[in-house]
Design a protein around this nucleic acid. Structure first.
Lengths: 203, 203
DNA sequence: AGTCGGTGATTGAATATTCAGTCAACAATG
DNA sequence: CATTGTTGACTGAATATTCAATCACCGACT
């Protein structure tokens, strides 16, 4: 098994996927502000003109790219149904924090942050991220509700707690990508303390 | 008192301040990706060339602008020494959430988010935001330590809790500016629940 | 089997636009 | 007069986008 980003085939068959990978590489390398069609073309083994054969504009390409990325991200979240709710929560957060801290993903994470920041002035971006958030939040909410039914968690407002948890993840990601020396270990530890003191029903 | 953003004089005497305001307006209107010297000049009642009389480059202008913004932000955080620690915490968060939710500040918040996102690929930006975070986090940490000494709070790791609180604020801000329908009321309510269950020493 | 016609993929060069930065000149002010 | 503020026109480098022209393949027709 070759070492590579787990988001892409080593040799993408599909043209679209090849374009997505080229965009990903260019975005990681140069950042959103310096992302040009030329640079995407440079990471692409076909000509840059070909990009316009598949997309109407740079903007259309980027919108498609964002959808592609978010879809893949949703695909990577762990979904074991087996364990107890509190364990599922912890496993999920372990996964998320591992991704945030993974040095190999640093550039990707930064790129996602930049992409998301575009939502501030781009509605189509904003809608996509909002949908992604909703999906993610629902998964968390499910786990919390399950935990309540299992008698493991207190009878909290599951939606409200899920909102908070997603906000924390978002804040941690944002900090990790835009701050030097963010103390994410502290946040992770405190997150467990939060779950313990707020959710766990110790009887 | 004329209605306006509280960040600027209605008629800035200082040229620098006028440039800052023009930059702010251009950034709010077009977003960081489409922020050009031309557009800053358009919001400026003097010519765009004059900008180069005051700054060596667009980059230098933007760096100065960021410093200007962060300075103003630090100036607006409330610092009453009087009350009990838990009240000070709540007052502080009320202030922050009011700013996040204030419709008049929406553009400002978005502008800050976009600026911060630039830190992903710009070191000088990142350093400035990191310094700002540190300052903010210290204030929160002070309050928590004070609360512990007052016997109001449990003997938690103040630095760790402060990290979490800053992360939550950051996440809330990020969501407010990049998501449609973010449920910030839920986050605010849950934040109180967190403080209650994790910090408050009920004896 | 072999040829013809069509279709989508692909390319390199050309075009039109945008943008940061410069400059020489003009205006105001002391 | 000298200094400082101010301007509009200008430039060269990028950048997005277009376009005319190949190329590779495939199905139909003889």
């Amino acid at each position: 098994m070759p070492k590579r980003t787990d988001l892409f085939e080593s040799d993408p068959d599909d043209t679209r996927e090849a374009i997505m990978k080229a965009t990903y590489d260019a975005l990681s390398k140069h950042g959103y502000a310096d992302l040009t069609i030329q640079r995407i073309g440079d990471e692409f083994d076909k000509s840059k003109s070909l990009l316009y054969h598949h997309y109407d504009s740079k903007d259309a390409l980027l919108v498609d790219f964002l959808g592609f990325m978010l879809e893949r991200m949703e695909g990577t979240i762990p979904l074991e149904e087996a364990a107890a709710a509190d364990d599922r929560l912890r496993v999920g957060f372990d996964h998320v924090f591992a991704e945030i801290l993974d040095g190999d993903r640093e550039q990707f994470n930064r790129a996602m942050t930049e992409l998301r920041a575009q939502s501030a002035h781009d509605d189509s971006f904003r809608e996509q991220f909002t949908r992604n958030d909703r999906y993610f939040e629902s998964r968390v909410q499910d786990i919390i509700e399950e935990g309540i039914q299992q008698g493991i968690f207190r009878e909290v407002d599951a939606e409200q707690v899920a909102s908070m948890l997603v906000t924390i993840i978002q804040g941690a990601t944002f900090q990790a990508t835009t701050s030097t020396e963010p103390d994410l270990d502290a946040v992770r530890t405190e997150l467990d303390a939060y779950i313990e003191s707020r959710l766990l029903d110790d009887d």
